[in-house]
């Protein structure tokens, strides 16, 4: 059953994008749109957006990676560990919880490390992987999505995103524990 899901999923991923890519121009031609002209017109934006997000990405990448490199992130983990352990949060997945909203690549690395150390089907790896799968790199999304349209004043976007992140991280621990007994 699980094996079937995996196969269907890989088939699905393989065909869904090509299908979208042919469906859109096909529908466009059916509606008598000059598809090539429209495509190029729209694609021009890609370049603008790419340049536009640079300052925002520099700000976010620099701040977050300085924080990691200085060792302050590890110190923060040490600081939070006793309190979190008390409420049933395994200390091994703490690096994941802290890194997830900050960096996508870094948190993927944590999952890989834990999988290697504890095995794929250990509860620790499953918790970390569920955290990875169920939250997004909030700071990066914020920089890219708002950077692309030059939004500097983000208002309540970060608190809202972080509240959802924190909840998802705790929920991952408890749901995985329930689900896998």
């Amino acid at each position: 059953m699980i094996e079937d899901i995996r196969i269907y999923q890989s088939y699905f991923s393989a065909v869904v994008i090509p299908l979208i890519v042919i469906a859109i121009p096909l529908y466009g031609m059916f509606k008598r749109v000059s598809v090539y002209e429209s495509f190029v017109e729209g694609a021009k934006e890609g370049f603008k957006v790419g340049v536009m997000i640079i300052p925002y990405l520099v700000a976010i990448f620099v701040a977050i990676n300085m924080f990691r490199a200085s060792g302050a992130m590890t110190a923060m983990e040490d600081f939070l560990r006793p309190a979190l352990t008390m409420i049933g949060f395994p200390p091994e997945v703490l690096p994941m919880a802290i890194m997830r909203p900050l960096t996508g690549g870094g948190s993927a690395g944590v999952v890989a490390d834990l999988a290697q150390e504890h095995g794929m089907s250990s509860i620790i790896t499953r918790m970390a992987a569920t955290m990875f799968g169920s939250t997004e790199t909030t700071f990066y999304i914020l920089a890219v999505y708002f950077g692309a349209v030059n939004i500097k004043k983000t208002r309540h976007a970060l608190p809202a995103g972080l509240i959802a992140d924190v909840l998802a991280i705790f929920l991952s621990v408890y749901i995985v524990r329930l689900w896998f007994g």
Binding site: Y27, K31, G42, K44, E45, V49, I53
Partner: peptide, 24 residues
């Protein structure tokens, strides 16, 4: 990183422009 993203962004934005113009 931003420059690496440009191509994919351009591709999807082009496709979405077609979808918009076609009323999709």
């Amino acid at each position: 990183f931003a420059i690496g993203l440009m191509g994919v962004i351009a591709l999807w934005m082009g496709l979405m422009k077609i979808a918009e113009d076609a009323g999709l």
